[in-house]
């Protein structure tokens, strides 16, 4: 390292400290400790039931840990920082009877007093034509996923939590999604996503965290395409 080069480690955007989540006598997460740096993409891997979605939901503030501590954005709880966090669940949470623009207008109305990107603009961001008059029920899975992502992006979150964003997508649609996420990462947004398809996320994965039975089995650097 050259003399005088900064060695400062950026302040983590989120920190989990020995986080455990118990559902009765089932331990979904066991003492997970992770720091998330800004502008990085973290890919969560693991078999079904490994704790990926639980971890995401705790970061999103939708679940509270049974034990341990979670802080985001300079010591806030996820609940306090909800407006800076975007969470895309495995289920689409969109209305099939509405068009994409109508869906987004509705969801934007749920954030009164908060600056939201215009629905038309956010649809363009995710590569969808806002002029489409088809209802969501007639969309392909890839288009639905991108609309879901657009919904998450409406209030301009800094931390994106995506539960299986490539689910049921063909390779081409998944590639489009990856390209979108690469752009957000370049814009210094932090992404945490779960997937069963490691190879799809590889081009944007700064870190790959594998969970097994609620524990961190490995935490390895990825090899993202720059």
């Amino acid at each position: 390292m050259a003399s005088g080069e900064s060695t400062a480690v950026p302040q983590p955007i989120a920190r989990l400290d020995k986080v455990s989540k118990l559902f009765g006598s089932f331990a979904a997460l066991r003492q997970v400790s992770v720091d998330l740096e800004p502008g990085r993409c973290y890919v969560l891997l693991g078999e079904n039931g490994a704790g990926k979605s639980t971890l995401l939901r705790i970061l999103a503030g939708l679940l509270r840990p049974s034990h341990g501590a979670v802080t985001v954005f300079d010591q806030q709880s996820p609940q306090e920082a909800r407006e800076r966090i975007g969470y895309m669940s495995h289920a689409p949470m969109l209305y099939d009877e509405l068009t994409a623009v109508e869906n987004l207008r509705y969801f934007a109305s749920l954030y009164p007093g908060r600056p939201c990107t215009a629905p038309e603009d956010v649809l363009c961001q995710v590569g969808l034509d806002p002029a489409l008059t088809r209802t969501l029920g007639q969309y392909s899975q890839g288009m639905r996923q991108r609309t879901s992502l657009a919904r998450v992006l409406l209030p301009v979150p800094e931390l994106l939590l995506l539960d299986e964003p490539f689910s049921n997508m063909d390779v081409e649609s998944a590639g489009q999604m990856v390209a979108l996420l690469a752009g957000f990462r370049q814009a210094n947004r932090t992404i945490v996503l779960t997937t069963h398809q490691r190879e799809l996320a590889a081009p944007i994965a700064d870190w790959v965290l594998t969970l097994h039975a609620g524990r961190v089995a490995s935490f390895e650097p990825g090899a993202p395409t720059r």
């Binding site: 003492q31 400790s33 720091d35 740096e37 973290y42 501590a69 010591q75 935490f219």
Partner: peptide, 20 residues
């Protein structure tokens, strides 16, 4: 009690993302 980040010993039993 809530732990302050500046004084928290971290990663002893866990995992910590580092900058590459």
């Amino acid at each position: 009690a809530p732990v302050q980040s500046s004084s928290m010993e971290h990663g002893k039993y866990g995992h910590k993302g580092g900058r590459r």
